[in-house]
């Protein structure tokens, strides 16, 4: 069962996390994402966490690791839509998630990946 749909749009992978991720699911998500990025020549990954009310230190760590992994695979990861309460909690926990790219929403995330118009023709740019 794949609990997290990884939506491919052009050469961008869009993931919207809608449910609370428990630890095991988070690790599986990390693995599947890395495989997909490597196999399908993904250039950018957008992880939307606007539905998450709780992000604990473990999930914060996972997000950070995903960003680092995709960066090794030559894809950039942007985490978008973090709620104020989540941001405050993470800061209070001392996790500043260095090097993690963030954006306000999916649209801003796409812009940060340098995409103004989605190219869905399937041709790699």
């Amino acid at each position: 069962m794949n609990a997290l749909p990884l939506l491919r749009i052009g050469d961008v992978l869009l993931v919207s996390i809608q449910t609370e991720l428990h630890d095991e699911l988070a690790l599986r998500f990390q693995r599947e994402l890395a495989e997909k990025v490597a196999d399908e020549h993904i250039r950018g990954v957008i992880i939307d966490i606007s539905a998450l009310e709780i992000v604990d230190s473990f999930l914060g760590r996972v997000l950070h690791d995903i960003a680092a992994t995709t960066s090794v695979l030559a894809a950039r990861t942007v985490v978008v839509g973090m709620r104020p309460a989540v941001a405050i909690t993470l800061v209070e926990l001392g996790l500043s998630l260095h090097g993690l790219r963030t954006a306000l929403n999916v649209e801003a995330g796409l812009r940060q990946l340098g995409i103004r118009r989605l190219d869905v023709s399937g041709e790699a740019r």
Partner: peptide
């Protein structure tokens, strides 16, 4: 600093 960090994590 906390405010700056939190804003940054939200993408601002």
């Amino acid at each position: 600093l906390k405010t700056v960090m939190a804003a940054r994590m939200m993408g601002a």
